[in-house]
């Protein structure tokens, strides 16, 4: 078919961020012509480059289907998973591929995630029980509405696109950032969890929710439709209620935590 032949012959230009700290004094961009296929995503193009042209190209990927969260990259200046960014979205090109903004670069598109991982660990993103219920009491049961309270926040795949989108994270070294705060909220809202107080000190600090100025880009770029901006706003309401209640000599019914 004519269209197929035409498509097969087309190429698209990829401008790829290159930086190998052991040999390069500073980062540069390298242009490659990559075959254009309608069903190809940017990750396919990068894999083709690595297999066929330049084996030294470095980038993270694993699942190819928007689940693992490894392949977060700036594509034409916007944080995307390269596995769901189709080449056809960026025609006629060129397509500029860079490491996620706001993170130190280890090599090419590979970023250093230590800061994110440390902050994630700090908010204890797991169910905390004051006392485990005994096995004969059975499982911890949860109603559909209790599940709905936190379910969307549990969809986070730690891809850190929201960090690349957040203008605050870029400038405030200590800011916990959108995904970490959304995951803290995910466990705070879980009816089985009793760890609120352990997380509060950290997330209610200036470096927690209060550095957020509700720009909202985190929720825009999330590939899993998590709404970190909403999680942070919810936590701000909780923190504010608690702040004012703490001045009262008693805890109003239903407001205790």
């Amino acid at each position: 078919m004519t269209t197929e032949t035409m498509t097969d012959q087309r190429t698209v230009t990829l401008e790829v961020f290159r930086y190998h700290p052991d040999t390069d004094s500073e980062p540069s961009f390298q242009s490659y012509e990559v075959p254009y296929r309608e069903e190809w995503v940017v990750l396919d193009a990068l894999n083709w480059l690595k297999d066929e042209v330049d084996g030294t190209l470095s980038y993270r990927w694993s699942c190819r289907m928007g689940v693992c969260g490894s392949c977060g990259t700036m594509v034409n200046g916007y944080p995307r998973l390269t596995c769901n960014a189709f080449l056809r979205e960026f025609l006629p090109g060129p397509i500029r591929v860079e490491p996620l903004r706001g993170f130190p670069v280890e090599r090419d598109m590979v970023t250093v995630l230590d800061d994110f991982m440390e902050k994630l660990t700090d908010v204890k993103p797991y169910i905390i029980r004051e006392e485990e219920q005994s096995l004969d009491e059975g499982e911890y049961r949860q109603s559909p509405s209790q599940l709905a309270d936190y379910k969307q926040f549990s969809m986070c795949i730690n891809c850190t696109l929201c960090y690349a989108a957040c203008p605050v994270y870029e400038h405030e070294d200590d800011f916990l950032g959108p995904a970490v705060l959304a995951l803290a909220q995910r466990y705070n809202l879980d009816s089985r969890d009793q760890g609120n107080e352990q997380r509060q000190q950290l997330i209610w600090a200036d470096e927690g929710i209060w550095d957020c100025t509700f720009v909202g880009e985190c929720s825009e770029v999330c590939p899993k439709d998590v709404d970190p901006a909403a999680a942070i706003q919810q936590a701000k309401v909780d923190a504010t209620n608690n702040f004012f209640i703490s001045f009262l000599p008693f805890t109003p019914p239903g407001m205790g935590r």
């Binding site: 000190q201 950290l202 209610w204 600090a205 200036d206 470096e207 927690g208 209060w210 701000k236 923190a239 504010t240 608690n242 702040f243 004012f244």
Partner: peptide, 15 residues
């Protein structure tokens, strides 16, 4: 980390 006084200002901002 010290507790934030931001809730007070944020409440005024919200109201």
């Amino acid at each position: 980390m010290r507790p934030s006084n931001e809730p007070f200002w944020w409440a005024m901002f919200g109201a």
